[in-house]
Deep mutational scan, measured.
Amino acid sequence: NQASVVANQLIPINTALTLVMMRSEVVTPVGIPADDIPRLVSMQVNRAVPLGTTLMPDMVKGYP
């Protein structure tokens, strides 16, 4: 099973992602692959992302 990117904390709308905000976890449904975490750094979320939420491609501005 492939690990996905999961919010490690509440991420407010328009926040630029940092490594501490994300963790990898095997979840269903599958979200953004954990391998993409380095690419996500400094990209902004377009909505508030609660703790434990799987990051989906449509939540991150400019992804992929």
Rank of each mutant, 00 (worst) to 15 (best):
A16R: 11
L40N: 00
T28L: 12
E25R: 10
A34W: 09
T53G: 13
V20E: 10
A16C: 05
N8I: 09
V20Q: 15
V49C: 05
S24P: 10
V6E: 01
R47V: 14
D35M: 11
I37N: 01
A16N: 09
L40W: 02
V49N: 02
S4K: 00
I13K: 12
S4F: 03
Q2F: 15
Q9T: 11
R39H: 14
D35V: 14
I13L: 11
M59P: 00
P12T: 08
Y63N: 06
V30I: 14
D36K: 11
V60Y: 02
T15V: 09
G31V: 01
V27P: 01
R23L: 06
Q9C: 04
N8W: 04
R47M: 13
D35C: 05
M22I: 11
Q9R: 08
V49L: 09
K61R: 15
P33S: 11
V49S: 01
S42W: 12
V41H: 04
V45D: 01
P38D: 11
A16F: 13
P33D: 11
P50M: 10
M43N: 05
N8K: 10
V20I: 13
V26E: 08
R39S: 13
V41C: 05
D35Q: 11
P12V: 07
Q44E: 10
V49K: 02
M21E: 02
T28D: 10
M21S: 06
L17A: 00
T54G: 02
M59S: 05
G52M: 05
P29S: 04
T15S: 10
S42Q: 10
G31S: 02
I32A: 02
V45Y: 00
S4A: 03
D36T: 12
Q44G: 04
V5I: 12
V27R: 15
T18L: 07
L51G: 08
M21T: 03
L17P: 02
P38V: 10
I11T: 01
P12S: 07
G52W: 04
M22P: 00
P50R: 11
T53F: 11
D35H: 15
L17Y: 02
N8L: 06
T53Q: 11
Q44R: 14
M59F: 13
P12I: 05
L10W: 08
R39G: 12
I37D: 01
A34P: 05
M56P: 00
M59I: 05
R23C: 04
S42I: 03
G52C: 03
